[in-house]
Structures are given as structure tokens and as C-alpha cells.
Amino acid sequence: MGKTTVGATVAIAAARAGANVQLVELEGRSQLASLFGQGPLAFEPRLLSAPEAGAGSITGRRITPDEALSDYLGAHGLERMTGRLTMTGIIDVVTTAAVGLRDLMALGKIRQIADRHLADLVVVDGPAAGHAISFLRTPSGLARASLGGPVHRQAEAAIEFLADESRCRVQLVCIPEPTPVTECIDTAFTLEEDLGVSLAPIVVNQIQAPIRGLISAARTVRLPGPTTTVIDRRVRQGRTQARQLDRLSEGLPLAQIHLPKLRTAQVGPADIHRLADAYGV
């Protein structure tokens, strides 16, 4: 769907509006930094785009659940502990049974960046649809287990953060095709109704501008087979796109932001800047 690319464009648009933005990737193997013409990100934030005339800066970092957990333990004074191996072992025992703990810590770290105003806006390149739901459901799962203590407080704080629309929103990305639209509508309802998360406008990526006169031209010209296939597909995609955008509007009462389809397989800095124009900042 181009989730990573869209995340980068949101960051650029916000920076243009003057915000200092921190872009966060969760898996550590995304091409987020390469969109800015840079090498892979690390846990420590790095400048991806310097502030300039009225525009804010964009920094990028990677927060894997494992890194978030060791950061949390470090912040609580466990780093100085001797016998680190034993420590790692026990943590391993705990996270084997309480599987969501690492994910909870990643959410906690994101919350911390936002709440301590280390950036005006934190943009997280989240997991894909199905996994996003289980990721965001982790805090309520752990809270329901009512384990008490710091973990419970972390879980409660995460639930509150996710449900507070002044602090956090989820932006869904889809493309104008039947299955992605269905999935986007289903995910939106699950997020709002089950998890109490507020949604930002939906980004519909890979929108193709209609080509005037293509349908009638296609009827009159004789072309080689493969070329005809391409023309027919383009005509059909135009219809599908219109139909799916209607379905999305009917299914979800949310504003839509349309990003144009790029004619390149290798997206770079110039492309994401052009895409960011769609936000009208």
C-alpha cells in the first residue's frame, strides 16, 4: 500500500507547516531512511531533513520492541546491574510468558517521545493491517490480565494515550482496489470500536489521473496484443478506482487524501517531496 512512503510524506508535510517531526520505524528493515537518501536508521535519532526557512526538522529512528524493552530497563537502573547474563535470562523468562511486554514497551517509548515534546509530531511507520490490530491491542490485553505494578501502569497509560485524540491518531493507508478497500473499512471499524482509537483522514495511495479521451481512442485504434492489454487495463483501472473511492466514502465517514501513483519503482527524495504537495501545506 506504500505505508512507509506515505509516512515520509506526512512527515514532510508537517515539517513544511513548521513542526519538528520524528519518524519512527518499528521493524528496523524498512526503506524509510532511503526515501531521504540515507542509510538504515538506528535506535538513536538521526537528522533526515534539516530545518529551513519556516520549516521544521525531520529526524528518524528505529524502535524495535527489543530495543524498547532494554531502554525501559536501562532507564530503571537495571543497566548498572552486574550479572547481565542472568538478568537477560530472567527477562527472557518473563517475556516468554508475557508476550506482549515488548510491544507495550515500544508503545511506551513512542508515548514518551510525544509527551516529553521531544518532537512536535511523532510519525510511526506501523505494522500492516492484521498485525497493527494485535499490536495496538497489546495494552488492553495486558491490562485485563491485571498484573498490577509498573506493567499495569504502563498498559493503562498506553490505553489512555491511544484513546486520546488530541495526542494520538491512526492514519490508515489503502489503494483504490477492492480487497485493500474492504480491509481498510474493516480495520477502521475494529480500531475505533474495539480499541477506541481515533482515525486521521484516510490516505488513498496510487491514484491515477484519468486520461481524457482514452476510452474512445481505445475503440478506434488497432494495436499489438500486449499494448491493447495495457490500454484496456488502464481503462478498467479508471473504473475500478472510481468505484472503490465511492465504496470507501460510503463505508467510512472520514476525509480522504489522494496521493498520485508514481511511475517509478525506486522512490527517492524528489518523489516524496512531490507527493507531500497533496497535503496542501
Binding site: 525501559y72 537495571l78 550479572g83 538478568m87 530472567i90 510468558a97 498484573l147 505494578g149 509498573p150 499495569h152
Partner: peptide, 26 residues
């Protein structure tokens, strides 16, 4: 002894209930 010390510290950070629940779980 080191393990117990470590366990106590971790219990402080993640919560003693969680740690005892983990033990019960296993």
C-alpha cells in the same frame, strides 16, 4: 544468590505480581 537479586530487581521494574504470575505460569 545473584539470580535472586536480579529477580528482585526485575520484580521492582515490571511488578512483583507479574513475576509471581510468571512463576505460576511455568
Amino acid at each position: 544468590a545473584a539470580t535472586h537479586l536480579a529477580a528482585r530487581l526485575i520484580g521492582k521494574v515490571v511488578g512483583a505480581t507479574l513475576l509471581s504470575d510468571v512463576i505460576e505460569f511455568f
